[in-house]
Amino acid sequence: MVQGMLLLLLCQLAGEWLMVWLGIPIPGPVAGMLILLVGLMIYGKVPDFLRLPAEGLIRHLSLLFIPAGVGLMVFAQLLAQHWLLVLLSLVISTLLTLILTAWMMQKLEQRQQNRSKANGNR
């Protein structure tokens, strides 16, 4: 458990340092995720001491968003003034993005499956 938590934090730290050093604008935690993924691919399995804290954190992911969400109160005035713009922008864009990406992913997936089937029959 402690080892696993330490490993997660080390990956994040490594990710943060690496991105600053390379001057790439990818946030540290995402870089850390990629580092850990590469590490797991090399190691060949997920060690038990990592699985426990990792799955615990992911299961309660939504709790971790609350402190930042409460921060919206700081912008109460701005939001009261522009609420329609914000709402329309978020709703329209999210709806269209969902439709486009779900449709695209399914189409591309089917095409790939058909192609690998065709290759298999040859």
Partner: peptide, 14 residues
Amino acid sequence: IHFLLGPATVALAV
């Protein structure tokens, strides 16, 4: 609590 978002993002590698 907010701090844990970092390691939680890393944990998505699992």
